[in-house]
Design a binder for these strands. Structure first.
Lengths: 279, 279
DNA sequence: GACTTATCCG
DNA sequence: CGGATAAGTC
């Protein structure tokens, strides 16, 4: 069966509930990871998502900031995690049960909101950057443990707050010292990826020379016109799932750019990836 | 010529600019007094009102609270006033020049935002109620001075924050101790009216037994369904203008109730009064 | 630039 | 309830 995966930093799920519902209606992903829901679990709008067909919902919320939630049409169960070094709500892990006529599998869906990291790309003088690096190290350790348990079928999605490739930013040179594209964080993300042999589905299916962005700042009038974006949002898969993504070709991966010009948009747009699971 | 007068407590003119423009487009009053514009003069949206045909604009603004503005299609000049005992921006006075083929007159247009008066109807323990009473006294003195100067053709509009008659509130009995309908403030308003022989156009044209409301609280879900309103907004005219209003009959006065159920409405609705000026 | 929480005010 | 301000975050 074909599974459609999605991720979106929504920058307040309460304020943009209608936009998420529109996206779900139009794209019908099986599973969506939301980041920056900016609410506590008790404030999360469960009912409208359930009415839209997303029966399975897992939320990690906190007051005012951060927070992640995973919505799914497919049954899933929560995988407990105590994760962020500072105790923020930045990770929702679930095991998704994908049963179809030619399919009886499950996979893990890890929904992450990696810390932005503040302004200065120096962990010595910027605690937030240090936190980002610590978080990446914690991710690495976390997946080492999961693999050691034999959990080898994994999807990682989320706002990683890192644009790793030269063509994941509008200007490699001008962003080399800007947090999100500095060598140190990019290397740490590359190390996490290499250690577990995760596949970045965007770059699996798109040539490295192609510019890909999923985020455009609020802080300029003409960011969309000048297209000064960054690819901060990612979908990664573990080795056993690589071929399931590769088989879909270029069109299996999609950045939903028009969402950035909807009324009162998030600064991020959703991305989707189709993955073919067979038994 | 027939002059259409209007007043509206807009509760933030910046937030409800589109609603004011819609009202002006639909009703085409010659002159509109706005209260609670909640902005400074430099933040006031002059341009869109001028584009809508309201070339003459006078604003008394302050930061965050209160504030009044008068918009007019007819030429008008500002009458300087230092008014509120606490220095709030609660009054815009202008002399309006009404020149038509059968008309060459002018009249004063006084746009007021009388203090709400706080919660407790006791000036001894509630400074805000004292301020309301002081403001009414200041209004009385102000008009005594104007009449002594021979300025006898006057229109007063605004949010008076007082519902004087029994049928200006949904329950006379239940509101007798609620600020806006207490005997003390009602008497002071009646005294202001009697001293200068002002005519309350709503009650000139509508029987005292008729319920009339221009305001419904935000603080209850069903205020419109249960119709628990109050008539806090008024249009008064001086003796020489009484017949100009009376000649228009009941339909000359209108409370624009549907505005209360527009999207994100003010808690007040606009009211309009037609007045026939002849030379 | 645009979210959150909070406090003030009506 | 729903404006405005102010501070904090991204």
């Amino acid at each position: 069966m074909k599974i459609k995966l999605a991720t979106w930093n929504i920058n307040s799920v309460r304020l943009r509930l209608d936009q998420v519902l529109r996206f779900l209606e139009e794209e019908q992903p099986h599973i969506l990871g939301l980041q920056e829901i900016k609410c506590q679990e008790e404030q999360f709008p469960f009912a409208p998502f359930r009415e839209a067909g997303y029966e399975f919902i897992e939320v990690a919320g906190q007051k005012g900031y951060h927070g992640a939630a995973t919505l799914s049409k497919l049954p899933m169960e929560r995988l407990p995690t105590t994760f962020c070094p500072l105790g923020h709500a930045r990770h929702v892990s679930t095991r998704v049960i994908a049963k179809g006529k030619d399919c009886d599998q499950d996979f893990e869906f890890h929904n992450f909101y990696i810390p932005a990291g503040g302004d200065v790309a120096d962990p010595e003088i910027n605690d937030k950057f240090q936190h980002k690096l610590d978080f990446l190290a914690a991710m690495n350790a976390y997946f080492s443990e999961r693999f050691s348990k034999g959990d080898d079928q994994q999807v990682l999605v989320g706002d990683f707050n890192i644009a790793p490739h030269e063509n994941d930013v509008w200007s490699h040179k001008q962003l080399l010292k800007v947090v999100s594209h500095t060598p140190l964080e990019v290397e740490l993300l590359a190390k996490l990826q290499a250690t577990h042999d995760f596949t970045d589905t965007a770059r699996l299916l798109h040539d490295d020379t192609e510019k890909l962005y999923s985020w455009w700042s609020y802080r300029a009038r003409d960011v969309m016109a000048s297209n000064r974006g960054r690819r901060l949002d990612h979908i990664w898969v573990s080795p056993t799932l690589k071929s399931c993504v590769e088989s879909q070709g270029k069109s299996g991966y999609k950045i939903h750019v028009p969402c950035r010009i909807w009324e009162k948009p998030s600064d991020h747009v959703p991305i989707t990836q189709i993955m073919e699971l067979r038994d």
